[in-house]
């Protein structure tokens, strides 16, 4: 049953034009890195510019945009279409449905984001460690984001819009302004991870690595718990909604 669950989720997530568009977003990151490198920048400048490219574009825009679309539609589209009832009617524990869907959404997000970050990072400058650091950060950030957005999709039917607003307003503007709000921002968590894995050129955002990982794990666990709780309290009624 788990295999079937994985395959229907994968098919729902990948069989659309929008996957192509999301892949194009990642390709755009690589293209910018290629164009930049073709301009023959100095070594020191290329590290700084590539770091900002990976941090601001890769972690700041590409990752949340992919995660919000993939994360909200992994379970959300089944809720929208009413096909969730066929899943819930099967003898599968509901926490298992949430976990399997989350893992699939996470992996899809990683596949769409991490390779683009690695390639752009390696092309943009010499040091592979920087690229790997940001790729690791995007993989961990993807888990936190997809868990949050999956929980959101169980809370409201307009999860994608609300998730987008959250990404732009909170992650984009508010979280960068104050040190207090920085602690509760997925983007800042991911950047702290990138700095600790990314070597000398990875910069500093001001969150300790240990704190970022702990906060990220806490948010992820809370989101998963919320999602499971919401799905467990869904009642099957006579008609599909």
């Amino acid at each position: 049953m788990t295999v079937a669950l994985v395959s229907i989720t994968l098919r729902a997530l990948l069989n659309r034009r929008r996957t192509l568009l999301l892949a194009l977003l990642g390709a755009l990151l690589v293209v910018v890195a290629v164009i930049y490198r073709l301009g023959n920048p100095t070594a020191a400048e290329s590290v700084e510019v590539t770091r900002r490219l990976l941090a601001n574009f890769g972690i700041g825009v590409l990752l949340p945009l992919v995660a919000v679309i993939v994360g909200t539609s992994a379970l959300g589209s089944e809720l929208d279409d009413g096909t969730i009832v066929y899943l819930l009617a099967k003898p599968v524990a509901r926490w298992r449905i949430v976990l399997v869907k989350l893992v699939v959404a996470w992996l899809v997000t990683c596949v769409l984001v991490a390779p683009a970050i690695v390639i752009a990072g390696v092309i943009g400058q010499e040091d592979p460690q920087l690229a790997i650091g940001y790729a690791v950060a995007s993989i961990l950030g993807a888990l936190e984001y997809t868990a949050m957005f999956m929980a959101l999709s169980l809370l409201t039917s307009r999860a994608l819009i609300i998730g987008l607003a959250y990404v732009v307003v909170w992650e984009g503007v508010v979280a960068g302004l104050f040190s207090g709000t920085r602690a509760v921002s997925v983007r800042q968590h991911a950047l702290a991870v990138a700095e600790s894995f990314g070597g000398a050129g990875a910069g500093d955002a001001g969150l300790a690595f240990g704190f970022a990982v702990a906060a990220g794990a806490a948010v992820t666990m809370a989101a998963i718990a919320l999602a499971i709780r919401r799905l467990e309290t869904v009642e099957l009624r006579g008609e599909t909604t």
């Binding site: 920048p41 945009l65 679309i69 819009i161």
Partner: peptide, 26 residues
């Protein structure tokens, strides 16, 4: 929702890439 995402993507990516490249020499 996709329309909203697409509009945001165009403006966000445009401003982020523009800002980064503005400080890169060439």
């Amino acid at each position: 929702a996709y329309a909203a995402g697409a509009v945001l993507a165009v403006f966000l990516i445009g401003s982020v890439v523009g800002e980064i490249l503005a400080e890169a020499g060439g």
